[in-house]
């Protein structure tokens, strides 16, 4: 499949569905006022929620000394120096961003390789007791990661001797996202109309043809959304990365934590780091926007 095809499919997936509005009966005098009140309240609340992000962005663009003053220096000159410093310093952010990218992308690919066949066996060609299998997957996600972290730490450090290694993170992130991906992919595959598959079988289509010509095109927006959500969760992960890595395999989130240094003006650079590591998540999240709800609700909400 070409990347152009994928782009169109993602674009299709993110086209907002038409929102159903409460039907408005004959115009009443109060209606315009209530619409105005609703609009204004929504804007105010939306603004309150976005302010910390705008302030983070503003702080990241201020010179370090101007970024932490009382009261805030709203109109200080803007500069990209903090971002430059993140890449220039001897302790550059780039290796950790590369580690994060490798962990997130490779684990997402592995998740897809494992979740798609599993979802297929849970939707189109169902195994007996498929719902038990579904709940087993879900229950592993409900198990808090801290419950297994100690044996995992001892195993990687004392048994296989791979401390500070991104390979370990990749395996952990794969298993962390697998249950979510199975649930999501199943809900997307369940949308494939079985009547079409039956018709194709009667016409003598091979399983391969059915998969590539019928199941594939319907499932691809779902695959895209699933990958984006798995990417986000892997990219965000902090606990395993903090405990299992130190220098070589340090990921972006762990690096940002090291930017807190109270002996000098650190807030501007900390903000720049926080903005920088959030950009991929914002991009992935808005790309998956339309399927985000279906994904986050494990396919329960269409």
């Amino acid at each position: 499949m070409s990347s152009a095809e994928l782009t169109t499919n993602v674009a299709e997936a993110s086209t907002p569905r038409r929102m159903q509005d409460i039907p408005s009966p004959s115009p009443q005098s109060g209606r315009r006022w209530s619409t105005a009140a609703i609009g204004i309240s929504a804007w105010v609340i939306g603004f309150v929620f976005i302010v910390p992000i705008l302030y983070m962005l503003l702080t990241s663009l201020h010179p370090p000394a101007k970024a932490q003053t009382y009261p805030p220096s709203w109109t200080a000159p803007l500069t990209l120096d903090n971002y430059r410093a993140l890449f220039d310093s001897s302790n550059s952010i780039s290796p950790s961003l590369i580690n994060s990218a490798i962990c997130s992308i490779v684990s997402t690919l592995l998740v897809l390789a494992l979740a798609i066949p599993a979802a297929y066996a849970l939707s189109i060609r169902r195994v007996p007791k498929w719902s038990d299998a579904m709940f087993f997957f879900l229950s592993t996600r409900m198990l808090p990661p801290v419950a297994g972290i100690l044996p995992i730490y001892l195993f990687t450090n004392k048994v296989i001797h791979l401390p500070d290694n991104i390979f370990v993170l990749i395996v952990l992130y794969t298993s962390m996202n697998l249950p979510i991906a199975v649930w999501m992919m199943r809900s997307f595959l369940a949308e494939v109309p079985t009547a079409i598959i039956e018709a194709a079988q009667i016409d003598g289509a091979s399983t391969f043809t059915i998969l590539t010509r019928i199941v594939g095109p319907i499932a691809i927006p779902g695959v895209a959304a699933t990958s984006l959500i798995c990417f986000i969760f892997a990219w965000n992960e902090q606990l395993f990365a903090k405990v299992l890595t130190s220098v070589v395999a340090q990921t972006g989130p762990v690096y940002v934590g090291t930017l807190i240094q109270t002996e000098h003006a650190y807030l501007a650079q900390l903000s720049a780091g926080a903005v920088l590591i959030s950009v991929p998540v914002l991009v992935a999240g808005f790309a998956a926007q339309d399927k985000l709800v279906q994904g986050l609700s494990l396919g329960a909400v269409k």
Binding site: F49, I50, P52, N236, V256, V281, L282, F286
Partner: peptide, 22 residues
């Protein structure tokens, strides 16, 4: 869009900025 954005900030980035900037 403004409402969704907070959910798409990396949790540790949000935490350190709330702790140190907000």
């Amino acid at each position: 869009t403004m409402m969704i954005a907070p959910f798409l900030i990396v949790p540790i980035a949000a935490a350190v900025f709330w702790g140190n900037g907000v």
